[in-house]
C-alpha cells in the first residue's frame, strides 16, 4: 500500500477513524534521517496490507506535531482505533520497523 500524505484536514478521517491500524511518519524535507527512512517505509508499506502508512510534514502541519508532542524527527507513531499505541523516535532499520508494526 502506498504512503498517504496527511494534513490537519484529513487527519481525523485517515488516522483517528481508520479501520486499520495506522503508522504515522512525522518528517520534514530538511531532515536527513527522515529522507533515509523514506525508502525503508515505502518498502515495508508495499509489503503490508493490514496497516495504513501516512506521512505528515511537520513544517506544514505544525499543529499536528504540537498536538502529538513531536519534537524530534523522524518520529513514527502507531495508532490503533485513534489511540497511540507505539512510538519510535529516530532512524530505524527495516527489521526494527517490521517488528514495530508486526505485533498485534
Amino acid at each position: 500500500m502506498a504512503v498517504i500524505e496527511v494534513n490537519k484536514d484529513n487527519f481525523k478521517k485517515e488516522v483517528l477513524e481508520s479501520e486499520k491500524r495506522v503508522l504515522a511518519d512525522f518528517n520534514a524535507s530538511w531532515c536527513g534521517p527522515c529522507k533515509m527512512l523514506k525508502p525503508i517505509l515505502e518498502e515495508v508499506a508495499s509489503n503490508n496490507e493490514n496497516i495504513k502508512f501516512v506521512s505528515i510534514n511537520i513544517d506544514d502541519e505544525d499543529e499536528l506535531a504540537e498536538e502529538y508532542n513531536v519534537s524530534s524527527i523522524p518520529c513514527l507513531v502507531v495508532f490503533d482505533k485513534g489511540n497511540e499505541v507505539k512510538r519510535n523516535v529516530g532512524l530505524i532499520s527495516k527489521d526494527d520497523l517490521e517488528n514495530m508494526i508486526g505485533e498485534e
Binding site: 530538511w30 511537520i58 513531536v70 519534537s71 524530534s72 524527527i73 518520529c75 523516535v89 529516530g90
Partner: peptide
C-alpha cells in the same frame, strides 16, 4: 524523553524550539 524535550542533534530538532 528523547523526542519529548531531550535531543542529541540541534540541527535536526532545533526547529521545534
Amino acid at each position: 524523553l528523547v523526542g519529548k524535550g531531550i535531543s542529541y542533534c540541534a540541527t535536526c530538532d532545533g526547529a521545534f524550539y
